[in-house]
């Protein structure tokens, strides 16, 4: 396993490198001139050129990329063009809120999705199954902004159970996490259901059931562990992508996550912030997927690290 881990860490570095190359290339293609935006609308062409020089944007692309890479290796992500503050400081200020929302969001997805999926599988074809199906699909199809506003209006404004958005203790976290859970829980419910049905249809489980073993025991001992593999894969991808920020949920609930930072940076072509945020996200995606890959053999011993 250690050899596998070492190999994966090396590969992950390659992934991160590839992401920076792609992002850099895309930024180069971006149809906006950051020097112009920084220099302001009253700037003369000469002023723009001098700003371009100050930002280092007049250097050849390769040189810029190597400069960036060199900085990253020394832990220097550069300064924001518009906020003039260290990108690492900006990212750091968003790290904890993003982590909290990510973990809480995945937790709500699981709390809503897993029991619903198991119930639906055990009551296959019944009204409970169909009701859960409807709710799952509604959760996924619901537009997030409207859903968020609705949750805020009813649960925070009318019933005053939670604060009206903003960052703070756990009571601030519940609604945005619930919004994420409602949207993502449907996926977990559906995958869990089909995964359970698949396992339940297998010979040994059918035999066990035929022998009169109680339902829940069969479910727990045999079915659940195997059925969880795809769920672990989904948790991995969700952990990774949520760490990249959930722009809509963050902006409705006023959550100072990384999504809002990235979105504003993209709109203002704040290249150092964009690069920093994308690299940051890539790091978590690689980590989360690695974690998922490490969990599979624990759930199903026949799967090996390779």
């Amino acid at each position: 396993m250690m050899a596998y881990l070492a190999q994966r860490v090396l590969q992950s570095l390659g992934v991160l490198w590839a992401v920076t190359v792609i992002t850099f290339a895309l930024l180069y293609l971006l149809p906006a001139d950051p020097a112009r935006l920084v220099a302001g609308r009253s700037a003369t062409p000469e002023v723009v050129e001098r700003v371009r020089h100050e930002l280092g944007l007049d250097r050849p692309i390769l040189q810029r990329y190597l400069g960036y890479l060199g900085g990253v290796l020394q832990g220097d992500l550069g300064r924001s063009y518009l906020q003039k503050i260290q990108v690492s400081e900006l990212l750091a200020s968003r790290l904890v809120p993003t982590l909290e929302l990510t973990l809480a969001g995945v937790l709500f997805e699981l709390l809503l999705g897993i029991p619903a999926g198991i119930l639906a599988a055990l009551r296959r074809g019944g009204w409970l199954d169909q009701g859960i199906m409807l709710l799952s699909f509604a959760g996924v199809a619901a537009p997030q902004f409207a859903l968020g506003l609705l949750l805020l209006y009813v649960l925070a404004y009318k019933l005053a159970l939670f604060p009206l958005g903003g960052y703070g203790g756990w009571e601030h976290l519940v609604l945005p996490a619930l919004a994420l859970g409602l949207a993502g829980g449907g996926w977990y419910a559906r995958i869990m259901r089909s995964s359970m049905l698949e396992v339940l249809s297998q010979d040994y489980v059918r035999t066990a059931r035929a022998k009169g073993l109680a339902g829940p025991v069969v479910v727990y001992k045999h079915a659940l562990r195997n059925a969880l593999l795809p769920i672990v894969a989904m948790i991995g991808t969700d952990l990774g992508t949520f760490m990249g920020g959930v722009v809509v949920v963050e902006s409705v609930f006023g959550w100072p996550g990384i999504g809002q930072l990235t979105w504003q940076a993209i709109q203002t072509v704040d290249i150092p912030v964009i690069l920093g945020a994308v690299t940051f996200t890539a790091l978590f995606i690689v980590l989360a997927n690695l974690l998922a890959d490490l969990v599979y053999p624990l759930l199903d011993p026949r799967v090996q690290y390779r």
Binding site: V38, G40, A43
Partner: peptide, 13 residues
């Protein structure tokens, strides 16, 4: 000063 990268410098040229 160009190092400051002020978007208002253009007003004072």
């Amino acid at each position: 000063n160009p190092k400051t990268q002020s978007p208002g410098a253009g007003f004072y040229t």
